[in-house]
C-alpha cells in the first residue's frame, strides 16, 4: 500500500467513549474529548492510572466500539469496525483455547487463505522471535501467563498489520524476557512501516519504547500531557538507560504527571 507521510495514520478527533449500562440512567464516560494524531510509523505510548480509559481508547481505534462523540480515522478514513490492518494484542491475551500455539499464531494468515505449510513457517519464525519455539504444540491453557502474552504478541506480529494496538503486552513476562521483547519490538518497528499504539503502566518502558508518551488523566480519561521522548534511539540502550540524565528527568516528569492524578 502507498504510505502517505503527510496524512496521519490515526487521527482521533474530539472523541468521547461512554458505556451505557442498564442499571444506571447516565452513560459512564470512560474517555473524554481526546484529540490525537499518530503519524505513520510513529511509536506512541499511552500511560495513565488504572481505569482511566486506555483500553477503551484502544478498543475504539481497533473498531470494537464506536465513540459517542467525535471521530476516529485510519488513513483519513472513518473506522467502521475491526480489520486486519489494525492488529491487537489484548490485555487478557484472547488466544483461542481450541487451537495450538502454532495455529493461534498462524490464524490471521489462515484467514487470508495461506496454505498450511506457508503459514506454519511464518508462525514458527515469530514464535522463535518471542522465545516460544518449544511451545508450538501446546494449547493456551498449558502455558504460563507470560507465555500466553508472548504468543499473543507473536500472533499479531505474524499478521503484519499497518498499526499495532498493544494493551500492556509485556505486563506478565519476567524482566529478562521483557527486555528482549522490548528490543525486538523496537527492531521490528524500525525495520517496517508499522505504527504502534502501546499501552503500559511502566514509565520506564514508555520512555524506552516511545517517540511520544501520552499521559491520560484519571477517568474519564482526558489527555493530560504529551511528552516528546527526545532521547536518540541509538542512546536508548536498556543496560545504561537508567543512568542517562535525560531519561531520569523524563521518568520523574511522567511519573509525577501520572501520580498527581491517581492520588
Amino acid at each position: 500500500m502507498i504510505v502517505n507521510k503527510e496524512l496521519p495514520k490515526i487521527s482521533v478527533d474530539n472523541a468521547s467513549i461512554a458505556y451505557t449500562n442498564q442499571d444506571f440512567a447516565e452513560p459512564h464516560l470512560a474517555v473524554k474529548d481526546v484529540t490525537l494524531e499518530v503519524s505513520a510509523n510513529e511509536f506512541l505510548v499511552v500511560v495513565g492510572p488504572s481505569g482511566c480509559g486506555k483500553s477503551s481508547l484502544l478498543a475504539a481505534i481497533a473498531g470494537f466500539l464506536t465513540p459517542q462523540g467525535g471521530s476516529i480515522k485510519l488513513n483519513g478514513k472513518q473506522i467502521e469496525g475491526p480489520g486486519a490492518d489494525r492488529g491487537v494484542v489484548f490485555q487478557d491475551y484472547a488466544l483461542l483455547p481450541w487451537k495450538t500455539v502454532l495455529d493461534n499464531v498462524g490464524l490471521g494468515l489462515k484467514f487470508r487463505g495461506m496454505s498450511k505449510a506457508e503459514r506454519d513457517k511464518i508462525a514458527r519464525e515469530h514464535l522463535a522471535l518471542c522465545g516460544l519455539a518449544d511451545a508450538e504444540a501446546k494449547y493456551p491453557h498449558q502455558l504460563s501467563g507470560g507465555m500466553r502474552q508472548r504468543a499473543a504478541v507473536a500472533r499479531t506480529l505474524a499478521n503484519q498489520p499497518e498499526v499495532m494496538l498493544m494493551d500492556e503486552p509485556f505486563a506478565a513476562v519476567d524482566a529478562q524476557t521483557r527486555m528482549t521483547l522490548q528490543e525486538e519490538l523496537v527492531r521490528i518497528w524500525q525495520q517496517t512501516e508499522v505504527t504502534v499504539f502501546f499501552v503500559t503502566h511502566s514509565v520506564e518502558e514508555a520512555i524506552f519504547l516511545g517517540d511520544r508518551v501520552m499521559v491520560l488523566s484519571s477517568g474519564p480519561g482526558e489527555i493530560k500531557a504529551m511528552v516528546d521522548i527526545d532521547i536518540e534511539r541509538k542512546d536508548r540502550d536498556l543496560s545504561s538507560l537508567n543512568s542517562n540524565p535525560r531519561f531520569q528527568a523524563l521518568r520523574d516528569e511522567i511519573t509525577r504527571l501520572v501520580r498527581q492524578d491517581a492520588a
Partner: peptide, 26 residues
C-alpha cells in the same frame, strides 16, 4: 467471551470464518 470474536475480527476473519474457527469450537 466476545474477546475471541474480536481477536478473530482483528486478524481479518470473515463472518463465515468467525463461525467456523471461533463460534463452533467455542
Amino acid at each position: 467471551p466476545i474477546v475471541y470474536v474480536n481477536a478473530a475480527r482483528s486478524l481479518g476473519a470473515t463472518r463465515w470464518q468467525i463461525l467456523r474457527e471461533v463460534i463452533l469450537p467455542g
